[in-house]
């Protein structure tokens, strides 16, 4: 597996984590837990965006591994 595909896999995991945290923050009744889920969801989203940029760079460096 190339580094590019590993990073992409990680990106996919991040997306799933972000979505799960988001859904939990909507479902949870407890105010404190809801807040923690929301905050962590936002944090994850920030990381996600950084990683997306990095994947873009990798694709530019190794165009043969573009896409899935």
């Amino acid at each position: 597996m190339t580094v590019g595909s590993q990073v992409k896999q990680c990106l996919a995991s991040l997306k799933s984590i972000e979505a799960n945290l988001n859904s939990l923050s909507l479902k949870t009744e407890n105010e404190e837990a809801r807040h923690a889920f929301h905050e962590s969801c936002l944090k994850t989203r920030k990381v996600l965006q950084q990683m997306e940029a990095r994947v873009g760079e990798l694709e530019y460096e190794e165009p043969q591994y573009k896409g899935f």
């Binding site: 945290l21 923690a36 944090k43 994850t44 990381v47 950084q50 990095r54």
Partner: peptide
């Protein structure tokens, strides 16, 4: 793994951020 300094920093920061996320939600 990466030798690109900028990328290294990026990954390191991201890893730290996710660690914080982990700490925040672990107990729930």
């Amino acid at each position: 793994q990466t030798e690109n300094e900028r990328a290294k920093d990026l990954f390191k920061n991201s890893s730290r951020e996710i660690e914080e996320v982990l700490k925040m939600v672990q107990k729930y």
